[in-house]
């Protein structure tokens, strides 16, 4: 049986997955409706975003390393890996910010066409989830720095870990559908 914190997080993730599935369906639907219209061919920089995505993907591994150490009460190592996770997540967000700025400068906006509408909604909500994940990770890092992670707080570490892996997995799908889909 899962602890109640982990169970609650799993349920939350189920509902969030549903939310993202709907946004993704809207993107795919408009893409299928007008294959020439709602896609990012030519507008998206797949290589650069691919590199930033690697940061997000590897942050799942660093968080796993942090989780292992915190659970064995190795706080120094745990905090170090936690900070690495936060740094990688922040780099990804910075990359997304640059991508947005470049697109907006070239006239691709939410109101330009259906690609802009669906692209910014989908990736924007993902970015918001990354940002909230960073807040949660920073809270954990703060707790660990101040007083160490106590026994009952390890559940919180696990729950935040589940959330972070989920956000990561959502990006795998978005990157596949939106970015790779635009060049294939």
């Amino acid at each position: 049986m899962l602890s109640k914190s982990k169970l609650a997080m799993v349920l939350f993730i189920v509902s969030e997955a549903n939310f993202f599935a709907l946004l993704l369906m809207a993107y795919a639907y408009y893409h299928a409706l007008d294959p020439g219209g709602a896609n990012g061919a030519g507008a998206l920089d797949v290589v650069t975003t691919g590199l930033y995505s690697v940061c997000l993907f590897s942050s799942s591994a660093t968080l796993w390393a942090a989780d292992r150490r915190l659970r064995r009460q190795e706080y120094r190592g745990g905090i170090r890996w936690l900070l690495a996770t936060i740094a990688l997540g922040a780099i990804f967000l910075y990359g997304q910010g640059r991508e947005y700025a470049r697109l907006l400068r070239s006239g691709v906006t939410v109101s330009r066409n259906l690609f802009g509408t669906t692209f910014f909604t989908l990736t924007g909500f993902h970015g918001l989830h990354v940002f909230l994940g960073l807040c949660a990770l920073a809270t954990l890092a703060g707790l660990a720095l101040r007083s160490g992670i106590r026994e009952r707080q390890t559940q919180a570490v696990e729950a935040v870990g589940l959330y972070w892996h989920f956000v990561d997995a959502v990006w795998v799908v978005i990157f596949g559908v939106v970015y790779l889909g635009s060049v294939l």
């Binding site: 809207a26 939410v110 109101s111 066409n113 259906l114 802009g116 509408t117 669906t118 909604t121």
Partner: peptide, 8 residues
């Protein structure tokens, strides 16, 4: 749609 003039 309403606030940012999107087209959903």
């Amino acid at each position: 749609d309403r606030q940012l003039h999107a087209h959903f």
